[in-house]
Amino acid sequence: MSKRLEGKVAIITGGGRGIGLGITQRFAEEGARIAIVQRNAPPPSILNERTVFIQADLTLPDEIARAVDRTVERFGGLDILVNNAGIMFEKTVEEMSEADWDQMMTVNLKAPFLLTKRAVPLMRSRGGGSLINIGSIEGIGSNPGHPAYSASKAGIHGFTAAVAVDHGRDGIRCNAIAPGWINSDLSEIYLESMPDSARIRRELLAMHPAGRLGEPRDIGNLAVWLASDESTFATGQVFVMDGGRTKKLPLPIG
Protein backbone atom coordinates (compact mmCIF):
# COMPACT_ATOMS: atom_id res chain seq x y z
CA MET A 1 0.00 0.00 0.00
CA SER A 2 1.44 3.38 -1.01
CA LYS A 3 2.16 6.00 1.60
CA ARG A 4 -0.09 9.04 1.36
CA LEU A 5 2.64 11.68 1.67
CA GLU A 6 5.39 9.95 -0.30
CA GLY A 7 7.42 12.52 -2.23
CA LYS A 8 6.00 15.46 -0.24
CA VAL A 9 8.14 17.98 1.64
CA ALA A 10 6.71 19.47 4.83
CA ILE A 11 7.61 22.14 7.36
CA ILE A 12 6.10 21.61 10.82
CA THR A 13 6.69 24.42 13.29
CA GLY A 14 6.94 23.21 16.86
CA GLY A 15 7.05 19.67 15.49
CA GLY A 16 9.17 18.29 18.31
CA ARG A 17 6.65 18.13 21.16
CA GLY A 18 2.95 17.82 21.95
CA ILE A 19 0.56 18.17 19.03
CA GLY A 20 3.45 19.01 16.71
CA LEU A 21 5.21 15.77 17.56
CA GLY A 22 2.05 13.81 16.85
CA ILE A 23 1.89 15.43 13.41
CA THR A 24 5.59 14.82 12.76
CA GLN A 25 5.29 11.14 13.64
CA ARG A 26 2.28 10.59 11.40
CA PHE A 27 3.81 12.51 8.48
CA ALA A 28 6.97 10.41 8.78
CA GLU A 29 4.94 7.21 8.76
CA GLU A 30 3.22 8.37 5.59
CA GLY A 31 6.50 9.00 3.78
CA ALA A 32 6.95 12.79 3.98
CA ARG A 33 10.31 14.50 4.25
CA ILE A 34 10.05 16.88 7.18
CA ALA A 35 11.74 19.97 8.53
CA ILE A 36 10.93 20.58 12.20
CA VAL A 37 11.27 24.31 12.73
CA GLN A 38 11.44 25.54 16.32
CA ARG A 39 13.74 27.17 18.85
CA ASN A 40 14.81 24.12 20.88
CA ALA A 41 16.10 20.81 19.57
CA PRO A 42 13.53 17.99 19.35
CA PRO A 43 14.17 14.47 20.68
CA PRO A 44 17.08 12.96 18.71
CA SER A 45 15.12 9.73 18.27
CA ILE A 46 12.81 11.33 15.69
CA LEU A 47 15.60 12.80 13.54
CA ASN A 48 17.06 11.03 10.50
CA GLU A 49 17.80 11.68 6.83
CA ARG A 50 14.13 12.36 6.14
CA THR A 51 13.26 14.30 9.31
CA VAL A 52 15.59 17.19 10.15
CA PHE A 53 15.70 19.97 12.71
CA ILE A 54 16.09 23.58 11.61
CA GLN A 55 16.53 25.94 14.52
CA ALA A 56 14.66 29.21 14.31
CA ASP A 57 13.20 31.85 16.59
CA LEU A 58 9.72 32.38 15.16
CA THR A 59 9.57 35.92 16.56
CA LEU A 60 12.31 36.96 14.10
CA PRO A 61 11.33 37.40 10.43
CA ASP A 62 14.87 36.79 9.15
CA GLU A 63 15.06 33.45 10.94
CA ILE A 64 11.68 32.41 9.56
CA ALA A 65 12.84 33.16 6.02
CA ARG A 66 16.11 31.33 6.58
CA ALA A 67 14.33 28.25 7.91
CA VAL A 68 12.11 28.00 4.84
CA ASP A 69 15.06 28.54 2.52
CA ARG A 70 17.10 25.85 4.29
CA THR A 71 14.21 23.41 3.93
CA VAL A 72 14.10 24.00 0.19
CA GLU A 73 17.88 23.67 -0.07
CA ARG A 74 17.76 20.35 1.80
CA PHE A 75 14.73 18.75 0.14
CA GLY A 76 14.32 20.61 -3.15
CA GLY A 77 10.94 22.25 -2.59
CA LEU A 78 7.96 22.66 -0.29
CA ASP A 79 4.51 21.06 -0.51
CA ILE A 80 3.09 21.28 3.02
CA LEU A 81 3.32 23.88 5.77
CA VAL A 82 1.93 23.16 9.22
CA ASN A 83 1.75 26.29 11.38
CA ASN A 84 1.60 24.57 14.74
CA ALA A 85 3.97 26.47 17.09
CA GLY A 86 2.26 28.73 19.58
CA ILE A 87 2.23 30.06 23.12
CA MET A 88 -0.46 30.51 25.76
CA PHE A 89 -0.70 32.36 29.05
CA GLU A 90 -3.54 33.20 31.43
CA LYS A 91 -4.09 36.91 31.94
CA THR A 92 -7.24 38.99 31.76
CA VAL A 93 -7.28 42.22 29.77
CA GLU A 94 -6.62 44.17 32.98
CA GLU A 95 -3.70 41.96 33.98
CA MET A 96 -2.11 41.90 30.55
CA SER A 97 0.52 44.36 29.39
CA GLU A 98 0.82 45.63 25.85
CA ALA A 99 4.04 43.61 25.56
CA ASP A 100 2.14 40.45 26.59
CA TRP A 101 -0.44 41.05 23.85
CA ASP A 102 2.23 41.73 21.24
CA GLN A 103 4.14 38.56 22.16
CA MET A 104 1.03 36.41 21.74
CA MET A 105 0.20 37.93 18.38
CA THR A 106 3.79 37.74 17.16
CA VAL A 107 4.12 34.01 17.83
CA ASN A 108 0.56 32.83 17.23
CA LEU A 109 -0.50 35.04 14.32
CA LYS A 110 2.38 36.96 12.75
CA ALA A 111 4.71 33.96 12.43
CA PRO A 112 2.10 31.91 10.52
CA PHE A 113 1.57 34.90 8.22
CA LEU A 114 5.29 35.23 7.49
CA LEU A 115 5.72 31.49 6.97
CA THR A 116 2.72 31.37 4.66
CA LYS A 117 3.95 34.38 2.71
CA ARG A 118 7.27 32.61 2.15
CA ALA A 119 5.62 29.29 1.33
CA VAL A 120 3.01 30.38 -1.23
CA PRO A 121 5.35 31.09 -4.18
CA LEU A 122 7.27 27.89 -3.47
CA MET A 123 4.07 25.86 -3.53
CA ARG A 124 2.82 27.66 -6.62
CA SER A 125 6.00 26.71 -8.44
CA ARG A 126 5.25 23.02 -7.73
CA GLY A 127 1.66 23.25 -8.90
CA GLY A 128 0.08 23.66 -5.48
CA GLY A 129 0.30 22.63 -1.87
CA SER A 130 -1.44 22.34 1.48
CA LEU A 131 -1.31 24.89 4.29
CA ILE A 132 -2.50 23.60 7.66
CA ASN A 133 -2.95 26.00 10.57
CA ILE A 134 -3.42 24.76 14.12
CA GLY A 135 -6.18 26.87 15.61
CA SER A 136 -8.15 25.98 18.72
CA ILE A 137 -11.65 25.58 20.06
CA GLU A 138 -10.67 28.78 21.89
CA GLY A 139 -10.92 30.53 18.55
CA ILE A 140 -14.63 29.71 18.83
CA GLY A 141 -15.16 30.08 22.59
CA SER A 142 -12.84 30.93 25.46
CA ASN A 143 -11.61 29.77 28.82
CA PRO A 144 -11.21 32.36 31.61
CA GLY A 145 -8.10 34.49 31.38
CA HIS A 146 -7.47 33.80 27.68
CA PRO A 147 -8.44 36.97 25.76
CA ALA A 148 -5.14 37.20 23.89
CA TYR A 149 -4.97 33.47 23.12
CA SER A 150 -8.57 33.34 21.95
CA ALA A 151 -8.06 36.42 19.79
CA SER A 152 -4.96 34.91 18.19
CA LYS A 153 -6.71 31.62 17.40
CA ALA A 154 -9.83 33.33 16.07
CA GLY A 155 -7.44 35.30 13.89
CA ILE A 156 -5.86 32.08 12.62
CA HIS A 157 -9.31 30.77 11.67
CA GLY A 158 -10.08 33.94 9.72
CA PHE A 159 -6.64 33.97 8.12
CA THR A 160 -7.20 30.38 7.00
CA ALA A 161 -10.38 31.27 5.15
CA ALA A 162 -8.82 34.29 3.46
CA VAL A 163 -5.73 32.45 2.26
CA ALA A 164 -7.92 29.67 0.85
CA VAL A 165 -9.97 32.21 -1.09
CA ASP A 166 -6.95 34.06 -2.46
CA HIS A 167 -4.78 31.09 -3.43
CA GLY A 168 -7.13 28.37 -4.58
CA ARG A 169 -6.34 29.46 -8.14
CA ASP A 170 -2.72 28.48 -7.44
CA GLY A 171 -3.68 24.95 -6.43
CA ILE A 172 -2.99 25.85 -2.81
CA ARG A 173 -5.43 24.72 -0.13
CA CYS A 174 -5.55 26.18 3.36
CA ASN A 175 -7.37 24.58 6.29
CA ALA A 176 -7.25 24.82 10.06
CA ILE A 177 -7.54 22.22 12.81
CA ALA A 178 -9.13 23.40 16.05
CA PRO A 179 -8.10 20.93 18.76
CA GLY A 180 -9.77 20.65 22.13
CA TRP A 181 -8.02 19.12 25.12
CA ILE A 182 -5.01 17.14 23.90
CA ASN A 183 -2.85 15.17 26.32
CA SER A 184 0.77 16.35 26.41
CA ASP A 185 3.58 16.94 28.84
CA LEU A 186 2.40 20.53 29.31
CA SER A 187 -1.23 19.58 29.94
CA GLU A 188 -0.08 16.95 32.43
CA ILE A 189 1.96 19.52 34.35
CA TYR A 190 -1.06 21.82 34.36
CA LEU A 191 -3.36 19.11 35.75
CA GLU A 192 -0.87 18.07 38.40
CA SER A 193 -0.63 21.68 39.58
CA MET A 194 -4.34 21.70 40.51
CA PRO A 195 -5.21 21.31 44.23
CA ASP A 196 -7.60 18.41 43.50
CA SER A 197 -6.18 17.00 40.27
CA ALA A 198 -8.09 13.70 40.53
CA ARG A 199 -11.43 15.51 40.61
CA ILE A 200 -10.39 17.81 37.77
CA ARG A 201 -9.44 14.79 35.65
CA ARG A 202 -12.84 13.15 36.26
CA GLU A 203 -14.72 16.32 35.38
CA LEU A 204 -12.57 16.92 32.33
CA LEU A 205 -13.25 13.42 31.06
CA ALA A 206 -16.99 13.86 31.63
CA MET A 207 -16.96 16.88 29.30
CA HIS A 208 -16.06 14.66 26.32
CA PRO A 209 -18.77 12.55 24.65
CA ALA A 210 -16.00 10.52 22.99
CA GLY A 211 -15.25 9.05 26.44
CA ARG A 212 -11.58 9.97 26.41
CA LEU A 213 -9.23 12.91 26.06
CA GLY A 214 -7.39 13.69 22.84
CA GLU A 215 -3.93 12.50 21.87
CA PRO A 216 -1.38 14.25 19.61
CA ARG A 217 -1.77 11.38 17.15
CA ASP A 218 -5.45 12.25 16.72
CA ILE A 219 -4.46 15.64 15.34
CA GLY A 220 -1.71 14.00 13.30
CA ASN A 221 -4.22 11.70 11.63
CA LEU A 222 -6.37 14.61 10.50
CA ALA A 223 -3.31 16.59 9.40
CA VAL A 224 -2.22 13.68 7.18
CA TRP A 225 -5.58 13.70 5.44
CA LEU A 226 -5.49 17.48 4.95
CA ALA A 227 -1.94 17.28 3.57
CA SER A 228 -2.73 14.42 1.21
CA ASP A 229 -4.43 14.27 -2.17
CA GLU A 230 -7.44 12.67 -0.50
CA SER A 231 -8.68 16.11 0.62
CA THR A 232 -8.31 18.14 -2.58
CA PHE A 233 -11.88 19.52 -2.33
CA ALA A 234 -11.42 20.68 1.27
CA THR A 235 -10.20 24.25 1.69
CA GLY A 236 -10.97 27.25 3.87
CA GLN A 237 -12.36 25.04 6.63
CA VAL A 238 -11.86 24.86 10.38
CA PHE A 239 -12.02 21.20 11.44
CA VAL A 240 -12.90 20.95 15.13
CA MET A 241 -11.34 17.90 16.80
CA ASP A 242 -12.40 17.93 20.42
CA GLY A 243 -14.11 14.62 21.18
CA GLY A 244 -17.48 16.38 21.00
CA ARG A 245 -16.67 18.74 23.88
CA THR A 246 -18.05 21.89 22.27
CA LYS A 247 -21.28 20.09 21.29
CA LYS A 248 -22.16 18.98 24.81
CA LEU A 249 -24.41 21.39 26.69
CA PRO A 250 -23.80 21.52 30.45
CA LEU A 251 -26.62 20.83 32.89
CA PRO A 252 -26.80 22.64 36.26
CA ILE A 253 -26.41 19.46 38.29
CA GLY A 254 -24.10 18.96 41.20
Rank of each mutant, 00 (worst) to 15 (best):
I11H: 01
T13G: 11
G15W: 06
G16Q: 10
G16A: 08
R17Q: 15
I19R: 11
G20L: 09
I23F: 06
E30Y: 03
I34Q: 04
A35G: 06
I36Q: 07
R39W: 12
P42C: 11
P44G: 06
N48Q: 01
F53P: 00
T59K: 09
T59M: 05
P61I: 02
A65S: 13
R66P: 01
D69N: 15
T71S: 00
V72A: 14
A85G: 01
G86T: 03
G86M: 07
I87Y: 02
F89N: 12
E94L: 15
E95A: 06
Q103I: 00
V107F: 03
T116N: 08
L122H: 05
M123F: 01
S125F: 00
G127P: 13
G129W: 02
I132G: 09
I140S: 07
S142M: 03
N143H: 13
G145P: 01
Y149Q: 11
A151N: 03
S152G: 04
H157V: 04
F159Q: 13
R169I: 11
G171M: 09
I177N: 08
P179G: 05
P179R: 03
I182D: 07
I182M: 07
N183Q: 15
S184E: 02
D185L: 07
L191E: 12
E192L: 13
D196E: 11
I200S: 07
I200R: 13
A206G: 09
A210Y: 02
N221M: 14
L222C: 11
A223T: 10
L226V: 05
A227H: 05
S228F: 01
D229H: 08
S231V: 01
T232D: 14
G236S: 01
Q237F: 08
V238F: 10
F239M: 15
V240C: 10
R245F: 15
I253H: 03
G254F: 11
